[in-house]
C-alpha cells in the first residue's frame, strides 16, 4: 500500500436513520475512515437528508440517538457534507431544519465554518462524477 495515495472518498447517505441501522453504521465508517487522511466527502440525498434533521429525540423508541456524532465530524477533519437541495425540498425541509455543523479552519485563524453545503442535484451529479471511491450502505 502506497501511503502517499490520496483518493477522493464519497460516502453516499440515502437512507433515513433509526428504521434501519445503515445510517449509524455508515457514520461509524466515516469516523474510522477519518484516520486515513483521504479526501473525504459525504453526500446526503433522498431520505439521507433526514439524518441531519435537528431535534432528534429517541428516548421513546429505546434506540441510541447518534445524531450528536455528526457534530464531531469537524474535529475529524470531515468538513464536506453535501446536502442536496431538491431532496430537502421534496421532503418539505429547508436548510434551517438541519443541525448546525461546523469545522474550525486552521488556515483562517480557526474560524468556524459550516460543514453543510447545500448543493443542487446538478452540482451533486458532477461532484459524484469526480470521486475515486464511492461507499454505499
Amino acid at each position: 500500500m502506497q501511503e502517499e495515495t490520496i483518493k477522493k472518498f464519497m460516502y453516499m447517505n440515502r437512507k433515513a436513520p433509526y428504521g434501519t441501522i445503515y445510517a449509524l453504521e455508515a457514520l461509524e465508517v466515516v469516523l474510522i475512515g477519518a484516520a486515513f487522511d483521504q479526501d473525504v466527502s459525504l453526500a446526503f440525498l433522498d431520505d439521507g437528508v433526514f439524518q441531519l434533521v435537528e431535534g432528534q429525540d429517541t428516548d421513546g423508541i429505546g434506540v441510541k440517538n447518534f445524531s450528536p456524532a455528526f457534530r464531531a465530524l469537524g474535529d475529524y477533519d470531515v468538513t464536506k457534507l453535501f446536502v442536496e437541495k431538491e431532496s430537502l425540498e421534496e421532503r418539505g425541509l429547508s436548510p434551517d431544519d438541519l443541525m448546525e455543523l461546523v469545522w474550525e479552519d486552521e488556515d483562517d485563524d480557526w474560524a468556524e465554518k459550516p460543514s453543510i453545503r447545500i448543493v443542487t442535484r446538478d452540482e451533486l451529479k458532477s461532484i459524484l462524477g469526480d470521486q475515486d471511491v464511492i461507499l454505499s450502505f
Binding site: K7, F9, V29, I32, I134, L135
Partner: peptide, 19 residues
C-alpha cells in the same frame, strides 16, 4: 476493524458494494 474497508478502498482500483 472497519479500517480494513477504507484500506480496501485505497488498495483497490475499484470497490464494488452489494447490499
Amino acid at each position: 476493524g472497519l479500517g480494513q474497508l477504507i484500506e480496501a478502498g485505497i488498495m483497490s482500483d475499484r470497490l464494488v458494494t452489494f447490499g
